Simulated assay, not measured.
Amino acid sequence: MSEREENTTHFGFKTVEEEKKVELVAEVFHSVAAKYDVMNDVLSMGIHRIWKRFTIDCSGIRHGQKVLDLAGGTGDLTAKFSRIVGQEGHVVLADINDSMLKVGRSKLRDLGIEGNVEYVQANAEELPFPDNHFDLVTIAFGLRNVTDKDKALASIYRVLKPGGRLLVLEFSKPIYKPVSKFYDFYSFNILPKLGKLIANDSESYQYLAESIRMHPNQESLKEMMENVGFEGTEFFNLSAGIVALHRGYKY
């Protein structure tokens, strides 16, 4: 295998050089940032709110603790965690994309959420935080866009305190064939058309559909988490496995 082949990865169904993927993903989220929340509601028919509520319920987060909402986008989880941890706690909304961070900061300030929230532009593979720092790290609908997922999971493990936990909320593999067939039809025929209609961007939503298909399935992601040191790892299938929540602990 040539050095060029060794340094390639997938961008949706395309094969690209690893360093190029970060740039391509950035272009997608620069494009969709302004309409991100609207599209989430339309494309999931509002169900993403239930998935995120389940994530909050599984977090075990308490008053005064520290949370990293990684790839936190427009801050839905950050808003909830900010209220739970209170002013004695601290929430970091981190995203590699500055357009998403700007939308998130503006949205949360409009909601009156300030004081205990910090905004950091950061790459999940090389988190700029101390070892053993956070009680909880969440990454919702972001891990599939990371170039080196193993490196990102190891970076997350490093910044978690002993006893801390990781929650990965991500699109996954439907567990029933009829659901899978409908989901494929919706993803590749309806989703890009809605992207064009609402956000004037069909290509970004075509990529999002493809990126979901390239993401590890439930068992594979669980194994990846265990390989970097997470224990007590488990996952919960939501909406028949269209989405899964993985949880692991650093002991």
Rank of each mutant, 00 (worst) to 15 (best):
M1V: 09
E3Q: 07
H10R: 07
G12T: 10
E17S: 06
K20N: 08
L24M: 06
V25T: 00
A26C: 01
F29A: 11
F29Y: 15
S31C: 08
V32R: 01
A33M: 12
K35G: 04
Y36E: 03
I47E: 00
R49M: 14
I50E: 04
K52Q: 14
F54Q: 10
R62A: 13
Q65W: 15
K66C: 08
V67F: 06
D69T: 11
D69I: 02
L77M: 02
A79Q: 05
K80W: 07
I84H: 00
G86T: 06
Q87E: 12
E88C: 05
H90R: 15
V92G: 00
G104W: 05
G104E: 09
G115T: 01
N116F: 10
V117G: 01
Q121C: 13
L127W: 00
F129N: 00
D131V: 12
L136M: 10
T138R: 13
I139R: 00
F141I: 03
N145G: 04
N145H: 05
R158M: 11
V159H: 01
L160Q: 07
P162L: 06
P162K: 05
V168Y: 03
L169V: 06
K173E: 09
I175A: 09
Y176Q: 13
K177H: 08
S180C: 07
D184M: 08
F185V: 10
F185L: 04
Y186P: 05
K196R: 07
K196C: 14
K196A: 11
L197F: 03
L197M: 11
N200C: 04
D201S: 14
S202Y: 15
S211T: 08
I212G: 02
I212M: 02
M214V: 13
N217C: 14
S220M: 14
S220H: 11
L221H: 08
K222P: 12
M224K: 12
M224N: 06
F230V: 15
E231N: 09
N237P: 10
I242N: 15
I242K: 11
A244Q: 07
R247P: 02
Y249L: 04
Y249S: 09
Y251H: 04
